[in-house]
Design a protein around this nucleic acid. Sequence first.
DNA 1: CTCCTATTTTGCATATAGTGGGACATTCTT
DNA 2: AAGAATGTCCCACTATATGCAAAATAGGAG
Lengths: 272, 272
Amino acid sequence: MSHYMQNRSMLDFRTDPSTPAGLPQTVDRALRILLAFDRESPEWGVTEISRAFGLHTSTAQRLLAALTHRGFLVRDDSSRRYRIGPAALYLGRVWDQVGALGLLAQPVLDELAAFTGQNILFALPDSAHMRTVLVAEGEHGRLRDYPMVNELYPAHAGATSKAYYAFLPFAQRKRLFIDRPLARFTANTATDLGRLERQFAQVRARGWAYTEGEYDEGVATLAVPVFLREEPYASLSVGWPKERLGEHPSDWVDALCSASERISLRLTHRGR
Amino acid sequence: MSHYMQNRSMLDFRTDPSTPAGLPQTVDRALRILLAFDRESPEWGVTEISRAFGLHTSTAQRLLAALTHRGFLVRDDSSRRYRIGPAALYLGRVWDQVGALGLLAQPVLDELAAFTGQNILFALPDSAHMRTVLVAEGEHGRLRDYPMVNELYPAHAGATSKAYYAFLPFAQRKRLFIDRPLARFTANTATDLGRLERQFAQVRARGWAYTEGEYDEGVATLAVPVFLREEPYASLSVGWPKERLGEHPSDWVDALCSASERISLRLTHRGR
DNA sequence: CTCCTATTTTGCATATAGTGGGACATTCTT
DNA sequence: AAGAATGTCCCACTATATGCAAAATAGGAG
């Protein structure tokens, strides 16, 4: 297991308490407050915020009101507590619509494609599948050979899916596979839940997934997860036609891992 | 066509230029600047921002830097222009993870369910389908009769899908239906592209969709679109078993439309 | 290549504008 | 009903964001 997965919970833009000199401190405080609304603590009162950030209640109250005025928070009038507001939905849609993910990650994929010479794939989970959202073409792999944007791969077949779903909490993964038979695509597809779970365990132990023709008969794939803070977020993979097996796949593990980490860093607004 | 669809582009939290007295103006400026990054203008320079908001370049520069420092924007060093940052992705995920949509919309659905006595459904588009994300149970409709959360309905069958897909730009809708045969679910399912497109046109003209047993044989559905700013965002519908047809469906059109509008208002941070 | 223009960045003095203290109001507890 | 905790409002003060001006950098034209 490569080293990069240890420090996923480092300091990032959410938790760093310092306001760099010269920047409007009021704005920075407001943004830090906004980022405090997460899954673990989705609701905050004025006093809680003031304590958590060492501010006067008066100040906290005004900052919360300012965030609320633009829809970043909403206030429940009966409980007087604040929650995340519709501007969060709006920003998330803008992120998608302008293809911001691509602007951040594509350069990393392109480097990988140049390094390996093979096609690179970036895929996001989508209802018990992985959906390719970014691709980079390597010199030895014409895109027609293999992946296109917006293709779907089932959760139980192929390294791309395995690298992601292996790191989902067991309860969530289980829910995906009960009541649905595991379709067989090739002779290598695991159609037995026990065997599949053992494969996932191996992927977790190694930190990467390698499959040969589990979904597409002639294709070998090497994949690693991409993390967003503590959670698996996406999957990054190299794919190549099996007959060109020459290169030893483990040669690319390090490159994939370091690319995955760079993307993670960018997605949490650390490293460039 | 009911009246509510006229004023979709009213003033909302994004465009209102006034900072209410007592609120920290710096914060409000920063948030307004952040909201200026949308699909139409995804990139801004310091001067552009300063002109658009009537600020000194110096001020604009510091506010942009503050937003960047917390990951809400990213700066392209070569062009010195700013784009939306990964904090937008983060906030969007928080919005989803804490079920903020439900907190905003569920009360409206519950009222509708009480008013109509039937089951109410709120569905979001999901790769050529509609996925139910919120339901409310009416006294005459046990949930078992009809909808559950997380069910999928194909884009070409049933009022729930029609109300949404009718308002997609033609080019986008077309892409969903080419190369895929339209599956037939019942005798009423439209499997011909021309006929389907005429149905969409009718939905647009009326502002609502009504179908009987196009997907589930025994079910009648009345649905309206929910808009987010200018774009269709979701679908809101009443469903009931056809044998209880007694009530005239058009009685519920107004209630559905006004509920849809209330949800829209909340999603753009106007009305309560 | 050099000059010119447009844009961005930095430093600093000023006064605007955010802050914290505290009083008042409200809600929840016991 | 009394007390505790939380939220809101108002005001004086000075911390802090601002505008100015100059320097630095980039881009375009000749």
